[in-house]
């Protein structure tokens, strides 16, 4: 977004100009209704994504475009619009990518369904493997009668000694 960045530069120079020019406190907003506070605006903006920058939540996006969108949210809030209505408006105007998650419709269901299914599939395969292993482990034991216990690996020798020592002390 090279051009947008240029826009940002120009915007910032404007901010600077205003910073030096404004000698007094910002004039109080003469709104008819109470203006929604920044926190109310941000509460909605943080659930939305900037339509022009990639993967930047709207509440922390510094571009001029996003500032305008936050003002739009403020205005819609002042008009008494609900969060759903504002989100709906954003989706209609700027596309589904402004939502922080794909809307639950059509092919987008895949995003929610595939990971749990894959995980369950994995869990099932693992469970089956456990069963197979246990069966295989039991078979030779039954054949050999006594069941030769696998030689304890070195770390467990230590662990066994350790447990034995603990027992002695009790």
């Amino acid at each position: 977004m090279k051009f947008a960045r240029l826009g940002l530069l120009a915007f910032l120079s404007l901010v600077f100009a205003s910073l030096f020019l404004s000698a007094g406190p910002a004039p109080a907003v003469l709104a008819q209704q109470p203006t929604p506070a920044d926190d109310e605006v941000n509460a909605i903006a943080q659930e939305l994504f900037c339509p022009v920058c990639e993967n930047v939540p709207l509440d922390v996006c510094p571009t001029e475009a996003c500032r305008q969108w936050r003002e739009l949210i403020r205005q819609m809030l002042a008009e008494g619009k609900s969060e759903e209505e504002i989100q709906q408006y954003f989706v209609e105007n700027y596309g589904a990518r402004v939502l922080s998650e794909p809307p639950r419709e059509g092919i987008n269901w895949l995003v929610y369904v595939v990971p749990p299914l894959a995980f369950l599939g994995g869990a099932y395969l693992l469970f089956r493997a456990f069963r197979t292993w246990q069966r295989l482990a039991r078979e030779p034991e039954a054949e050999a009668g006594s069941g030769s216990a696998p030689a304890a690996p070195p770390e467990d020798e230590y662990a066994a000694r350790f447990e034995a020592e603990l027992k002695k002390r009790k």
């Binding site: 939502l99 922080s100 998650e101 092919i107 987008n108 895949l110 595939v114 990971p115 995980f119």
Partner: peptide, 30 residues
């Protein structure tokens, strides 16, 4: 499981764009 979630979340916008032409964001809540 975590890997599948992450990989799928990264790849899904690509799939969505190819199939429907629509861009979607898979963001933190997911």
């Amino acid at each position: 499981g975590v890997l599948i979630v992450c990989l799928w979340g990264v790849l899904f916008p690509l799939i969505s764009e190819i199939v429907t032409g629509q861009k979607v964001t898979v963001g933190p809540p997911f």
